[in-house]
């Protein structure tokens, strides 16, 4: 059984560490906030100018002056702070954010990521993604392993215009988790979703990868 969107978010949440300042992208990454392990203090940054994002408001308490980068209504915490877009990206570009989790359309075995346009067909714009991948200390890409046609989205080289070159540290798909060696390039398979086999990942992955799965005692 492949991971659901929620389970992918939960897996990404395992990468959080106590005291981390974290930026979550739109879509599956936003769900990571629901799976912050108990006892861990994590501060969420929103690139439109907020540190310390609180939960979604109760019905009737929405504030149009208080939204996250996905334009959703949120709330503030006693420790929250607000700042301008220029300050926000100084924070991001300056390497002060520990972790970013971003959605992706394609990733490559050298750690490239594409997530903003399909030329001629779709143009969402880049938003803060290029700044995040180039400035944040650790970057996780979360994506479905294959497209609707069943073709691999984890590639030797991205076919779409890049968001960043050699910037991804970890790839979480619905089938497995890859670590990326950003310096030398190359993917290492470190985890399979329950019920997913190595053969299935081999069949569904265009990128080259090495097997770094823990060896099981029963020899499987």
């Amino acid at each position: 059984m492949a991971w659901t969107r929620e389970q992918m978010a939960e897996r990404a949440a395992h990468e959080l560490k106590d005291g981390y300042y974290v930026n979550l992208g739109i879509g599956i990454p936003t769900l990571v906030a629901n799976y912050i392990p108990c006892g861990l203090k994590v501060v969420l940054q929103s690139e439109n100018g907020m540190l310390g994002i609180g939960p979604f408001p109760f019905p009737g308490e929405e504030d149009p002056d208080l939204i996250n980068a996905g334009k959703q209504t949120v709330t503030q915490l006693p420790t929250s702070s607000y700042f301008s877009s220029a300050d926000s990206f100084a924070m991001i570009r300056g390497g002060h954010i520990d972790l970013a989790v971003l959605g992706a359309m394609e990733v490559s075995e050298s750690g490239d990521i594409a997530n903003w346009t399909i030329p001629g067909k779709m143009m969402k714009g880049v938003g803060g993604a290029m700044d995040l991948v180039s400035g944040v200390k650790h970057v996780i890409a979360v994506l479905e392993h294959t497209n609707k046609e069943g073709e691999s989205k984890i590639l030797k080289r991205c076919t779409l215009p890049l968001t960043g070159k050699a910037v991804i540290d970890l790839v979480i798909s619905d089938l497995c988790v890859f670590e990326v060696d950003r310096k030398k390039g190359g993917l290492v398979l470190i985890e399979l979703a329950p019920g997913v086999t190595l053969d299935l990942v081999r069949a569904k992955t265009e990128a080259a990868f090495t097997n770094g799965l823990p060896v099981r005692k029963d020899g499987q």
């Binding site: 220029a86 926000s88 570009r93 290029m130 700044d131 400035g135």
Partner: peptide
């Protein structure tokens, strides 16, 4: 890129005609 946009505007207001950033490289 959003941060580059913000910084270009900040630079405009602060009298800095250009700057270097890793973003978008």
């Amino acid at each position: 890129p959003q941060g580059t946009l913000a910084e270009r505007i900040r630079a405009g207001g602060a009298g800095i005609p250009a700057f270097f950033t890793k973003t978008g490289a």
